[in-house]
Nucleic acid binder design. Sequence first.
DNA 1: CCATAATAGAACTGTACTGTTCAGTTTCGC
DNA 2: GCGAAACTGAACAGTACAGTTCTATTATGG
Lengths: 209, 209
Amino acid sequence: MVRPQELSPRARAKADQIREGAQRVFLKRGFAGTSTDMIAAEAGVSKQTLYAYYPSKETLLVEVLRHLIHEDPQNRLPELEEMRLDTQEGLRSALDSLAKELIARLMQPDYLALIRVVIAETPRLPQVGYLFRSAVPEQLLGNVVRVLNSARANGVIGEINTDAASRMFMGALLTYAIPDGLLVGDRPPSPPPTQRIEEIVDLLMKTIS
Amino acid sequence: MVRPQELSPRARAKADQIREGAQRVFLKRGFAGTSTDMIAAEAGVSKQTLYAYYPSKETLLVEVLRHLIHEDPQNRLPELEEMRLDTQEGLRSALDSLAKELIARLMQPDYLALIRVVIAETPRLPQVGYLFRSAVPEQLLGNVVRVLNSARANGVIGEINTDAASRMFMGALLTYAIPDGLLVGDRPPSPPPTQRIEEIVDLLMKTIS
DNA sequence: CCATAATAGAACTGTACTGTTCAGTTTCGC
DNA sequence: GCGAAACTGAACAGTACAGTTCTATTATGG
């Protein structure tokens, strides 16, 4: 069922076209709110073709989410390779830009829609929950822990619990993203002003120094 | 539509009976996964009676959520009145028990189910999102801010940004509750060991001292 | 004990949706 | 250009479900 290597380029393109159409509708209306007729229309494809590529609406949702989570470059986690973590100011600036980048992505309507669908469908499709969990929160936390460990190894910060500190940092951002993004249904999400984010970074720096 | 004051005790009881049955089914199967036949059967009531009290399935969901969020004593936020916030140890113990209490409630299957339904239905029923937001995260954050402000006024902690500190505290707990609760669909949620929670409290104490 | 209101049970309407099928058309490799 | 494969559009089968309506039964209050 649409494993890349076993498809001709033409078939690959059709499968992508269908998946992209499905993605637009799923993210706008959720799984239950989307019919296969809508998907076919949005993808510009007949329902017969849709079912030739994907055996069910559920499979199609899993493919959409798998692609969004694992392959869509727009959802790639911010990279931190080039950061200079050998001074306090380098670390602060790394955390600051990471936080701002994260909030910006997290509060995109499409990303919030993805999270909503994942959370809503996890009881029925547990694999979707694991997929998302291993691709996003675990990677993010791991990244921050690595940054802090590296700064600690460089003697930039004290001997603190880097796991707990990472959770405080990431979690504080969630306290903005959840109420002002996920729990707002009739207006666009309202990201916090950069000053709020800088307060978090400041306090974290104070914590770990 | 079931405003308490305009109902006889008998009618009030029936309305509650229906709402309680609906709650069980909605929390177990979500909104889309629940039929009005299921609700009527679960509540031990005919569909005719159901529609005599609630004009639609959607209304019934809103009533269920409103009750869970605003009136169900099981979902009341932990109280902090009696805490002694005039010493470091008092503050630590207050934060410690608050965190443990919160994690325990947050990771109950029924509470996770409530959150899932709220998040899933917020785009279609924005009032549900606002209801939850104002009843839970805002209250919780406000409570923690008040605790910290009071401790700061008592000279127990330094001149720190109590809003940012509260967000770090609450948020860190979310980094456990979301991946190990909301994003797990086929197993019971796995709360973190108390040691993890104490690490958060320790680091927060370090931050604010 | 009776008149009235509340409820049960069950059938029914209309709609919407998933997945299939079929007849005809387009596209592609060669 | 031709034969095969891919595709369209539309209809269709089967199911599920929200909400209504009917008739019969049960509880309630005076």
